[in-house]
Simulated scan of single mutants.
Amino acid sequence: MSTTKKNTTTKKSLSSDKLIALYMDYVLENEKTPKSVYRFCKDNKLKEDEFYNFFGSFESLQKGIWERFFEHTLKVLETSPEYHEFTNREKMLTFYYTFFEMLSANRSFVLFSLRQYESKLKNLEQLKGLRKQVKHFAQELINEENETKNLKVLKQSEAIFSEAAWIQLMFLLNFWMDDNSAKFESTDVAIEKSVNTVFDVFDNIPLERVIDFGKFLWKEKMA
């Protein structure tokens, strides 16, 4: 009877977030990914079919981790009363600051995950779900701004802006991975300058920001 009760309790408490936490712990403690779902479940006293109730493979679980990073970031933003009063520029800045704070809190896992394979493209496959989320987030920002503009010629392209936001995130991610500054302050500066540059490009006043951003990148590269 006690065994049945224990198994029932485990089943009830199991969730996709719990599986993600177990997977991240395994990777950090063993400095490698699990060899099989069967072995991973056995080590964590789970049935294999319980894993498949949430993820079809380790690859889908890895994608789920990045999607959770995004979802938790958005949840933090949505619960802030000030956020809803921000301009789109401020919303994007706050999004990046919060997102990279979350990455920094999980830096050891993120660095392992993004350097797992020799092929950079293979490492980036886990970001497919995150890419959709970030592009959708950027499209919503531009939709809000376009609704306030009466002239079609002044409206910003949602597709271009959302793609720019994704490229920007990839640049910032690479920057953050190599950032050795205290509290990753250089990444914060890169976020501010890159976001201002992108928004200024869409506001048709890019020159000063682009030059300033270029100087910053050159300084960081040569340091």
Rank of each mutant, 00 (worst) to 15 (best):
W66I: 00
K155L: 01
V198W: 00
M177S: 11
N143G: 15
F58G: 03
Y97I: 05
L173M: 13
A138C: 06
Q133V: 02
S104V: 03
M24D: 01
W218L: 13
L22R: 04
V198Y: 02
L103P: 00
F86T: 02
N204R: 11
Q139G: 15
L124G: 07
S186F: 11
N30D: 03
L22W: 11
P206I: 05
N150G: 02
S181V: 04
E220T: 08
H136I: 05
T10N: 08
P81Y: 02
I142M: 14
S36H: 07
F69G: 04
K122A: 07
E192F: 04
A105R: 13
Q133L: 14
L127N: 03
E90S: 08
T3Y: 11
E185Q: 15
E145V: 04
D25S: 13
V195A: 04
K122Y: 04
E125K: 13
S36K: 06
A165N: 08
Q139Y: 06
S16T: 11
T94K: 09
L93N: 10
L173R: 04
T148V: 10
L61G: 03
K120D: 14
L172P: 06
V37W: 06
V198S: 01
A21Q: 14
E147F: 10
K91E: 07
A190F: 02
D203Q: 10
L217Y: 07
M24S: 03
D43K: 12
E118S: 13
N88D: 12
W218Y: 13
D25Y: 10
K122T: 10
K75V: 03
T94C: 07
M92W: 05
Y52C: 03
D200A: 11
N106Y: 09
K5V: 10
F69H: 07
